[in-house]
Design a protein around this nucleic acid. Structure first.
Lengths: 191, 191, 191, 191
DNA sequence: ACGAGCGGGACAGCCCGTTGTT
DNA sequence: AACAACGGGCTGTCCCGCTCGT
């Protein structure tokens, strides 16, 4: 007996959109390309996404945010001390950049910059940043950082990595990421 | 002796382009809008910019980079110690964001993310980041930071501010910027 | 004994279609909107209307024609003399226009003009005009007008009211209708 | 010496648009078809018509209105008495219908019904009706009809012919037009 | 009778880059 | 150095007709 299995078209389109928005930006990516690369059918696009491109982008932001959340959680589980944890995240991001030949960075930033006029989209990006900051802050607190300082420090870490990804991509060179993580380390407490 | 005073059309277009690319992204901004808002004539656009939109964007990146360089130099002149200097820069960026109601952030980042396929454009963005990092590193050296560490630290500062601007814009709230500068301060040496 | 009470979906769709074709024209109205506004289910549309949009429009024409027929019959019953009868019809049409803020006029005309390529549709419109003319002619004959002249006169009345509705709608002003009825009156015989 | 002779593309598009809007209605006619049939270039459409399809339709209404104005003036010049004048106009309209095999009627009505949401378009149609009514009213006055009645009578004539054109087209038979003109004649005064 | 989904084509609008002429 | 005009491709959006499975 086969479970009715709803079409995968919607999810396929979201995945492809996250990748393409990341590579080419929000305005630089057309729906046609997203559908072509995802193999999703054209006719049901506005059935799956009544809100059009914007709604698709909101979903793409959620997917991209969840991937990074997963990365952060995995690093936190492996490294109890914040210094190694942040360096591990930076290394993972650097590898991600290199593996795509610096074509893919962070879909959230790409969409945040390309479409900050759309309030729902902006809101989704804001939620992504907030979740990352929250995860980092909790890890810092667990490592003994005082709660208020942990929040501000987590904000700095998110911003640093975010900015370092953009710069690394522009340079086609991951040193900005590793330097950022290395230089941040002393802030997390005594070695 | 009369200076020929070339037409301002070219410069007007560049200025408008920097503002609009910042606000709407590279692909989100059309040449028609740039010409309309700058008042530059349509007919001579490809006389002034034979390279088309890409060449215009390169010039816009240079202009935007120079503005930030000016900001950095001014802050360095006023604040000999790196902590206050970086905090002053963050405050200035925050004011810039607020003044435009978070519509304008950094044209370099907007273009870097929107058009990183164009090598000349990417090169111009890379040069912008490099010049900022260089200015910051020299200021750190002058304040007594060892040269190698100063370069890495400057890289972190640039990345942090860059990322904080993106996040602040997304949040419509400047705290990410001020938090970043505050948390970075201890890295610059003993109070 | 329970009357099977067939689903109202079909009738709902026809009613909504008549209203929307009237407001927006045949090509300006999509099936999706008709279904949305009527609350009729999407899945069974082609069960109820195997002929698609065209068949739905034919039914809409019939409904709209019947409404006008009803209006004509009621006016004829109340006013034995043709002059008052036609003026009463014009007033009713004017009220109908005003009540919808001149958004709705006559669905038959809207469809006749928008889709006169479809023979079945054209046929339905022709039947509507014929039935109105017939009703009017009989009323004129009953009032003493000679039979041949009654037919031609009824044709003029239908055309006048038809045209006056279009003009009134364009003007957002019912005077074209009342003027038409007033000026026609002398043709119906001695006061 | 050659007069710079601006491109005929704009006028070509307007002429084709008038014909096609008449045949297929406003919403039933696409810009692509208008450009294809007129031979006008695609790239400069929004140069010639910044207001898009709506602006094109406004011009088409003006052209169509002017053609009818010309017809009315010619008939008025040839027939000093209103009866023959109106009958001559009706004959001309009937011939026009027959010549196009009842595919073309009156572009103004087609657009008035298809796009009465667009205020500028509605305004252009209103102006067309007003100009026809005015021409007719002046002719009636010149023939001795009292001024106030002439205006109302002219309104009736315009509405009748308008409606008769729609009905004739639906019937593919010009009798509605000739009947209308014949039956109107007694209103214009003693034979 | 009906919801979900597909297929592919059309819509209006706008894009960037190039002509000719002046 | 600026103009009117072109060329044709692409955008997001929406369309109608249909087939599934229930």
């Amino acid at each position: 007996l086969v479970v009715p299995r709803r079409s995968s078209a919607r999810q396929d389109a979201i995945t492809a959109a996250a990748r393409l928005f990341d590579r080419q930006g929000y305005h630089g990516t057309g729906i046609a390309q997203i559908l072509a690369e995802s193999g999703a059918p054209r006719g049901s696009f506005y059935f799956h996404f009544p809100g059009g491109k914007g709604e698709l982008a909101v979903e793409a932001v959620r997917v991209a945010a969840a991937e990074v959340e997963h990365l952060l959680r995995a690093a936190a589980a492996r490294h109890p001390r914040p210094g190694p944890m942040v360096r591990s995240v930076a290394r993972a991001l650097a590898q991600w950049l290199e593996r795509s030949d610096y074509a893919e960075g962070c879909a959230v930033t790409a969409i945040a910059l390309g479409a900050h006029r759309d309030d729902q989209l902006r809101s989704a990006c804001r939620a992504a940043y907030a979740s990352w900051q929250c995860l980092l802050a909790e890890h810092l607190v667990a490592a003994g950082v005082e709660r208020d300082r942990a929040a501000a420090l987590a904000s700095l870490v998110v911003a640093s990595l975010e900015g370092a990804v953009v710069i690394s991509r522009t340079r086609r060179d991951p040193t900005a990421l590793t330097e950022a993580a290395d230089q941040l380390t002393p802030l997390f407490g005594p070695a």
